[in-house]
Amino acid sequence: MQSTEKISSNQLGILLFSFVASTVVLTLPGLMAMYAKQDAWLSVFPAMSTGLLSIWVMTLLAKRYPGLTIIEYSQKILGKWLGRCLGLYYIYFWFMSLSIMTKQHTFFIKALLLPRSPSIVGSLTLLILCGLAVYMGIEVIGRCSEFLTPLKLCFLVPLLVLTIGAADPALLKPILGDGILPVLQGAILPGGAFMNQLFILGWLLPYLNQPKKALKVSLFALLAIFIFIFIIVFSTLLVLGSLTGQLNYSYLSVMQYIGIEGSFERLEAITVMIWVIGSFSKVSVTLFILALSISQIFGIRNYRDIVAPLTLLTLVGSVWVLKNSAELQTYLTFIYPSIGFITQSLIPLLLLMIDTIKRKVTRSLH
Rank of each mutant, 00 (worst) to 15 (best):
Gly241Arg: 13
Gly87Ala: 04
Leu156Pro: 00
Lys6Ile: 11
Ala170His: 12
Ile141Thr: 12
Glu268Gln: 10
Leu223Trp: 06
Cys130Gly: 00
Ile297Ala: 01
Pro169Met: 03
Gly131Ser: 06
Tyr207Gln: 05
Phe334Asn: 10
Pro190Ile: 12
Gly177Cys: 07
Lys173His: 10
Phe194Glu: 05
Gly142Arg: 04
Val316Leu: 08
Pro348Gln: 10
Thr311Asn: 10
Ile342Cys: 11
Leu82Val: 13
Ile200Val: 14
Ile100His: 02
Tyr35Val: 09
Asn324Gly: 10
Ser242Glu: 04
Pro182Asn: 07
Gly340Asn: 00
Ser235Phe: 09
Leu365Asp: 09
Ile229Gln: 07
Leu350His: 07
Leu215Met: 15
Phe95Pro: 00
Trp320Ile: 07
Leu332Trp: 04
Lys103Leu: 13
Ser235Val: 06
Phe264Gly: 05
His366Ala: 12
Ile100Gly: 02
Phe288Ala: 15
Gly83Asn: 01
Gln185Val: 02
Ala111Thr: 08
Asn302Pro: 07
Gly340Pro: 01
His366Val: 13
Gly262Ser: 14
Thr362Phe: 11
Ser99Glu: 06
Tyr336Trp: 15
Ser54Lys: 01
Met255Tyr: 10
Ala133Gln: 08
Leu16His: 03
Thr314Ile: 09
Thr69Pro: 01
Arg304Val: 08
Gly241Cys: 12
Thr102Ile: 12
Ala47Gln: 14
Pro158Cys: 02
Ala187Thr: 13
Ala193Trp: 02
Ser318Trp: 02
Leu31Ser: 08
Thr59Pro: 03
Ile232Trp: 10
Leu129Pro: 07
Ser99Leu: 14
Gly13Ser: 09
Tyr207Gly: 00
Thr333Ser: 15
Tyr249Pro: 08
Pro118Cys: 08
Val316Ala: 07
Val285Asn: 01
Gly165Thr: 15
Ser3His: 14
Leu219Trp: 13
Val316Thr: 08
Ile335Asn: 04
Ser293Gly: 03
Met58Phe: 14
Val254Asp: 08
Val217Met: 00
Ser250Asn: 08
Asn196Cys: 08
Ile188Phe: 05
Leu219Arg: 14
Pro115Met: 10
Gly79Cys: 02
Leu290Asp: 04
Asp305Leu: 06
Thr23Pro: 11
Ala133His: 05
Leu346Met: 13
Arg301Asn: 15
Leu176Ile: 11
Glu139Gly: 10
Thr163Trp: 11
Ala21Gln: 00
Gly83Ser: 03
Leu68Cys: 07
Leu247Pro: 01
Ala193Ile: 02
Pro46Asp: 04
Leu113His: 08
Asp305Pro: 00
Tyr89Gln: 02
Thr271Phe: 15
Arg301Thr: 15
Leu313Asp: 02
Gly259Ala: 13
Asp39Ser: 11
Met353Cys: 11
Ser250Ala: 15
Gly142Glu: 03
Gly186Arg: 05
Glu265Ala: 11
Val217Phe: 00
Arg363Leu: 10
Gly278Lys: 09
Thr102Asp: 03
Asn302Glu: 14
Thr69Ser: 09
Leu290His: 06
Gly13Val: 03
Asp355His: 14
Leu205Tyr: 09
Ile339Asn: 05
Glu72Arg: 13
Ile347Ser: 06
Lys213Cys: 04
Cys85Ser: 14
Pro337Ile: 02
Gly259Trp: 11
Ser54Met: 05
Glu139Phe: 03
Gly165Pro: 11
Ala47Glu: 08
Ser235Met: 12
Leu237Glu: 06
Pro211Trp: 13
Ile188Asp: 00
Leu162Asn: 01
Met353Pro: 07
Thr244Leu: 09
Phe19Asp: 00
Lys80Trp: 10
Pro46Phe: 03
Ala308Ser: 03
Leu237Trp: 00
Thr106Val: 14
Ser97Ile: 12
Leu204Glu: 01
